[in-house]
């Protein structure tokens, strides 16, 4: 049987035995250390969100939750602003991603066509904005002049053009959609718009999914635009609420004294662990489904 195997894949088995060397051992050792360094802090947050805050603060919780409790999650339910933020973030992410994809992919397709008159100048018009911009205040004043300050629209429309994404999609169209296809469609009397919607888009699912993922993650995680352009708490996205819970209150909560203050502080800490889980879970759940597109997406972008 050994002989049969050796014949079946002689090179592979021989190589495996011969070259398992020091370098390889070091690589695996190092990789395992890195895995621990990445996974353990995240795991710590997960088990801490289910544990007695006193055990966490006292350094008694290391591997498994201690004094199992759902108090942190229950406390979250009381904070309606978190759920308003959640709803807003979902709306911004869904609508923002749809607008952004429609705008960017359409422009990318037009720019990918070599018979577009003025292609060079138009491309420059787009790319220039990657390296030069008006900066914070002039942009802020522009938004205010257009009466977009403190509106729903400011979160999904003005900054939906992503030139980098346009370049990625353009490269994809150039390399993956054969030019002959357009020639043939044209002979059949198919116009540009019909061709784009009925032929190009269905052939571009890979690049569409990658861009959708990038954009959606960006919307879900960003807080900058909300910080600058929103005042009304009811429009706040989740990240801005999280900032208040996780970061701004950090200093204050550690200042109180007395028994009640200690308990309140512990509950606040426990809630921080749970809010991290609740806010990050949706993105993490999306991740395995789209992972197969990652390498592909970067490859598309790397062709340049």
């Amino acid at each position: 049987m050994n002989a049969v195997e050796a014949v079946a894949k002689p090179a592979a088995s021989k190589e495996k035995r011969r070259t398992f060397d020091v370098l390889e051992a070091l690589i695996y050792l190092f990789a395992v250390m890195m895995l621990i360094l990445i996974v353990y802090p995240i795991y710590f947050i997960v088990i801490a969100s289910f544990s007695d805050p006193a055990a966490v603060a006292g350094g008694r919780m290391w591997v498994l939750p201690m004094g199992f409790t759902l108090d942190g999650y229950q406390e979250l339910l009381k904070h309606s602003n978190i759920w308003i933020g959640y709803k807003n973030t979902i709306l911004y992410t869904v609508i923002g991603t749809l607008i952004s994809l429609a705008v960017n992919v359409s422009a990318a397709y037009a720019l990918s066509r070599k018979d577009l008159a003025g292609r060079k100048a138009i491309t420059l018009f787009f790319i220039f904005t990657m390296f030069f911009n008006g900066g914070l205040i002039p942009t802020f004043l522009t938004i205010r002049d257009f009466h977009l300050y403190d509106t729903f629209l400011v979160m999904v429309l003005p900054f939906s053009v992503a030139v980098f994404n346009i370049i990625v999609a353009r490269t994809f169209f150039q390399s993956s959609i054969p030019g002959d296809l357009w020639e043939a469609a044209q002979l059949d009397g198919c116009g540009n718009l019909k061709y784009y919607v009925q032929i190009v888009l269905p052939l571009s699912k890979a690049v569409l999914s990658v861009l959708a993922l990038w954009t959606a993650v960006g919307y879900w995680n960003s807080y900058f635009n909300a910080l600058i352009y929103l005042k009304d708490q009811d429009l706040y996205p989740l990240q801005l609420i999280l900032r208040n819970i996780l970061i701004t209150n950090q200093m204050q909560s550690s200042m109180g004294t007395g028994e009640a203050a200690v308990i309140a502080m512990r509950l606040a800490n426990l809630m921080r662990y749970s809010v991290i889980i609740v806010s990050t879970l949706p993105i993490m759940c999306m991740y395995p489904f789209v992972q197969k597109y990652f390498n592909q997406g970067v490859m598309i972008g790397a062709v340049k």
């Binding site: 705008v103 960017n104 720019l111 018009f125 942009t139 522009t142 003005p158 053009v161 540009n192």
Partner: peptide, 26 residues
């Protein structure tokens, strides 16, 4: 190719309004 310019229009207008006007604002 008027259809292609139509496809370009939304992105170009957005950049004009929210990237180039602020540049003038500098």
């Amino acid at each position: 190719n008027w259809g292609l310019y139509l496809l370009l229009l939304p992105a170009a207008v957005l950049l004009l309004l929210f990237a180039y006007i602020p540049m003038y604002g500098v």
